[in-house]
Computed example of a mutant assay.
Amino acid sequence: MRRRSVLIAVPAGLVTLAGCGDDGSDSGNASGSASPSASASSSAPPPPKIVDGPLPAITAGTKFDEKPTVAKGSGEPSDQLAVKTVIAGGGTTVAENDYVQANYLGQIWDTATVFDNSYDRGAPLVIQLAAGSIIDGWRYALAGKKAGSRVEMSVPPTWGYGTSGNEQAGIKGTDTLVFVVDIQNAYNSKSSAKGTDVAQDNVDLPKVGTNTDGKAPAITVPKSDPPTDLVANYVIEGDGVELAAEDSVLVQYKGVLWDTGKEFDSSYSRDALTSFSLQQVVKGWSQGLTGKKVGSRVLIVVPPALGYGDQPPEGSGIAKDSTLVFSVDILAKM
């Protein structure tokens, strides 16, 4: 399992897709490092005042997405949230509750001890800027920044890990933390696949809309018998990395019934993106998305044996032995 930052909370599975995976393994558990995932504090502190400094110098690795070296903090850090845009990007503006994809390095103000960085792992962090998902320092510091930006911040305990600190990372309850964050991308409920349209010329398969305006694509099911085998075809082919069977993903999706074309589940309808592990969903999803590229829109037709068979979720509107049809936009690998 890939080493993951402890900034991450365990991703929630899909309401109608979770619970029918192969086993109970959880690739979302953090281990071996400390990152900005939320602490278990019982009450949220008031919002901090955003100040300009002081902030330690970045002495090496000064380019965007290059691993930085940061000097030790000088003097006393601010008791508020110090934030500086070191490099201004021109991409999507980040808002609270958006997901960000970012590389980052975190160290302790007093000692310059690095307690976590994603650069050495070779995989950026994808996490939601939401209360309970990430430390408040990140939530407040990154809101309003643009993708393509490098942001430096100093986070006092109040908006970090609180008075309990983070023992796993060697962070005491009195430590102010310094982060350098390179925001690669941002995703919200209007995000869509980005890539090249792929011909949908099989008349016996559903047709999926190719709009990329953040609205749910249309799914047109043919008046024919459903396939008996799993179908997983590109509708839009992105150029990102290929997903492995143990990966977690951030997606937009819509599901309809083959027999009626009726929608039974959709992230678009909830106006919220969904993240999950490919090991925690029905086999049709885990098998259908494995090997597909990030940035793509995929048509998945799930026969009953790889879906819910004769045990559909109660209240889902899915009848026994239903064939399910999905459009899935793979926005990011978590």
Rank of each mutant, 00 (worst) to 15 (best):
S78V: 05
P46R: 14
A193V: 13
A218Y: 06
N29A: 00
T212D: 01
A319K: 10
P77L: 04
K49N: 11
L129V: 15
Q168T: 10
D204L: 04
S149C: 06
P45T: 05
S316A: 14
Y268S: 13
G214P: 14
K293L: 10
Q279K: 08
D65W: 00
L257Q: 12
P206K: 03
D65T: 08
E76S: 15
E96V: 10
V178A: 03
P68C: 08
L125N: 02
A40N: 11
V221G: 08
V256T: 13
A82W: 08
R2N: 13
L17R: 11
R3L: 15
S41N: 11
S41D: 11
A244S: 13
A102C: 09
W109N: 08
T69L: 05
S269L: 07
D65Q: 05
Y104E: 04
P304M: 06
G106A: 10
D23R: 14
F179E: 06
G307M: 02
D229F: 07
Y234T: 15
K320Y: 07
G90F: 06
I318N: 03
A88T: 14
V301C: 13
P124F: 13
A244T: 13
F326Q: 03
A319D: 11
S74I: 03
Y119M: 03
D175I: 02
L125W: 01
V155K: 00
I8A: 02
A57K: 15
A169M: 12
K254L: 09
P156Y: 07
Q252P: 07
L177A: 07
A112N: 01
L125A: 05
S43A: 10
P45S: 02
Q107T: 09
A131G: 12
A12Y: 04
S78K: 03
V198R: 02
V114P: 01
P157C: 06
F115H: 04
V94M: 06
T92E: 06
S149L: 07
N166T: 09
I236C: 06
S267K: 06
I127K: 04
V221P: 09
K63H: 06
P206R: 01
V281W: 08
